Simulated scan of single mutants.
Amino acid sequence: MLELRPCCECCGTDLPPDSREARICSYECTFCAGCAAGVLAGACPNCGGELVRRPIRPAAKLLKHPASTVRKVKPAGCVAA
């Protein structure tokens, strides 16, 4: 089950569970669309994997399987992989 992390690891932008701006790699590293398309050029800086749009979990399912509240943000921001 995806964690649905709450923010961009690069800039800290909030990415709620229903955000269409969230991008993830296969390890669920999470970034906003701006950072993913900009400085990261579509590649995860942690593993080098492709960044794709994170799916949205239906609101009714969030009651049973809530999104993560753990914020992971790189103190120095991000650089391309």
Score class of each variant (00 low, 15 high):
15 L>W: 01
71 R>L: 00
14 D>C: 00
74 K>T: 03
69 T>H: 08
72 K>I: 13
44 C>A: 04
34 G>V: 10
20 R>F: 06
3 E>S: 11
28 E>L: 09
59 A>G: 02
80 A>P: 00
37 A>R: 14
1 M>D: 13
8 C>E: 07
32 C>T: 10
6 P>A: 01
74 K>F: 11
59 A>N: 11
21 E>W: 08
65 H>V: 14
6 P>C: 02
49 G>L: 09
18 D>R: 04
80 A>C: 12
67 A>V: 00
24 I>L: 03
47 C>S: 14
10 C>F: 03
5 R>D: 00
60 A>I: 06
59 A>C: 01
63 L>W: 03
45 P>M: 12
31 F>K: 06
29 C>F: 08
6 P>E: 01
13 T>G: 00
29 C>A: 14
67 A>Y: 01
8 C>V: 05
1 M>W: 09
29 C>P: 02
17 P>H: 12
81 A>G: 15
80 A>K: 11
49 G>R: 10
46 N>R: 14
52 V>H: 08
16 P>T: 06
40 L>W: 06
51 L>C: 09
52 V>L: 13
15 L>Y: 08
59 A>S: 15
7 C>V: 10
28 E>K: 00
9 E>I: 08
57 R>Q: 15
7 C>H: 01
80 A>Y: 12
77 G>Y: 00
19 S>H: 11
37 A>D: 15
54 R>P: 06
6 P>Q: 07
10 C>S: 13
62 L>R: 15
